[in-house]
């Protein structure tokens, strides 16, 4: 029981002090779980993190689930995940309920008009950052163009596109392997 509480509380702390998730979380995870508590090693953490990047769901949650599972099995995974999610729920609900009262204030309206412009730049920045590890070779470019086409011309939903792209990626890798052998 003590261990479950420790898992919940230490991930609660990580959730509370991470701004941005994903890569921003890595140094905090290292300090808390590798150095302070010695629950996982550096290389284990890197493994969890990189698998978390390529499995469904938010990377932060995936990493929490891994560490929790390693320490205490399924219940540990649940405790760690709830721990990392709880600060978000509390803070966002608080901010959202306060903000919704002031959404008609002219200053708030102007501020968000400015903010919405920067959000576009931030999204574009995310695309540029993810491009290097995400798009490899002619197949990557082709897949990117095809997805854009399916999205714009065929109006396919994002869920469908991910499924199609996943199957295509798998088939391409199989083809490469067969060609090699």
């Amino acid at each position: 029981m003590k261990m479950l509480w420790d898992l919940f509380f230490s991930f609660f702390k990580v959730g509370l002090f991470t701004f941005g998730g994903g890569a921003a979380m890595l140094p905090l995870l290292q300090a808390e779980f590798v150095e302070r508590r010695k629950w996982v090693t550096d290389s284990e953490l890197m493994d969890f993190y990189s698998i978390g990047q390529c499995t469904p769901g938010i990377i932060a949650i995936n990493t929490a689930t891994f560490v929790g599972y390693k320490k205490q099995g399924k219940i540990g995974a649940i405790a760690a995940t709830l721990g990392i999610v709880t600060p978000s729920i509390i803070i966002i609900l608080l901010v959202a309920s306060i903000l919704s009262k002031y959404m008609h204030n002219p200053y708030v309206i102007h501020a968000f008009a400015g903010i919405r412009i920067v959000v576009v730049a931030l999204i574009l920045d995310a695309v540029v950052r993810l491009w290097k590890q995400g798009v490899k070779g002619r197949f990557g470019w082709g897949m990117f163009a095809l997805s854009l086409l399916l999205l714009v011309a065929a109006g396919l939903s994002p869920v469908m596109i991910v499924i199609v792209a996943g199957v295509a990626g798998y088939a391409f890798q199989l083809y490469l392997r067969r060609k090699r052998s």
């Binding site: 999204i123 695309v127 995400g134 854009l148 596109i161 991910v162 199957v167 990626g169 391409f172």
Partner: peptide
């Protein structure tokens, strides 16, 4: 890991279009 080879570029197209 293999499916990801196709998913990553597709996801970038999705984000770009959303942007």
């Amino acid at each position: 890991r293999q499916a990801l080879f196709g998913i990553r570029p597709a996801v970038l197209a999705l984000i770009l279009f959303a942007g």
